[in-house]
Amino acid sequence: MEKVKVATGHLQGCFGCHIAILDLHEDIVGILEAIEIVRSPINDVKEVPEVTLGILDGSVTNTENREVAKRFREKADKILAFGTCACFGGIHGLRNLYPLKDVLKRSYVDSESTINGKIPSSGDIPEMLPHVHAVDQVIKVDYHLPGCPPTPYMIKKALTDILSGKEPELPTKNLCHECVREHKEMYIPKREFITETVTALMELEHIDQKKCFLEQGVLCMGPATREGCDSRCVKGNTPCRGCMGPTPDALEQGAKMINALANILPAGGLMFMEDVVGVGYRYALPVSIYPHVKEDAK
């Protein structure tokens, strides 16, 4: 059987999603029997050949990313946005809260370790775009697979589905559905907040390994986040940070978390008050309703 030709491309991000493909371990052998990776950052082919599937990780933040994404679209029958950055813009999407000139100044001039810094302006390097975009804000995307990074199981299932001509299905419920922790107080119809205070995880003297984080007064993005990641963080005694993005019926993750949290923890979660944006919009700001700072502001 002829192998399906696949190209992978890396846009802006940490490269973790490409590494995550290796997390498939021995399963990668089976997948490589079905596909041939004709272009990837690893085999260092620059041009994008004609392929059946193009896999893009990372977000679009500069002119080079935009160009690569467009070439992939031209040459690939189907495009998979691979990982949280590709799907939602990712953590560096938070730079959308600042005008580009401030971002550049902070990075190249004002940063504490910089002496006589200046903003690079040669035509040799790609130009930064004013805002960070998810891949589907730039080109048409056929399939999405969020996760920071997607778990091996998710990757294997998505690739198997795509190779068999099926659309990879994402779960639709929130993380609480697959969370193994016990929910008790959340189910008591009482208007009082669950706890009197909001606590950072490291402030807890004892983390109850079985109890819902919110019920311990710890912020957890689980309620506003899509399930499917096997709740790795929560199982590892760390609250959910929301990398799987919003559920399909929510228009955005941050606003929904605000609405919910306002009735769960005092003052909507005091920490949340201090950093609403960093918590609620950590991964998905570029695809939120109001995706970047107003141009004429600040």
């Binding site: 639709t172 929130n174 609480c176 009735n263």
Partner: peptide, 12 residues
């Protein structure tokens, strides 16, 4: 299909 049973509405 979407509700995951988090309980927020029950508290609200």
């Amino acid at each position: 299909k979407v509700c995951g049973g988090c309980g927020t509405c029950i508290k609200t």
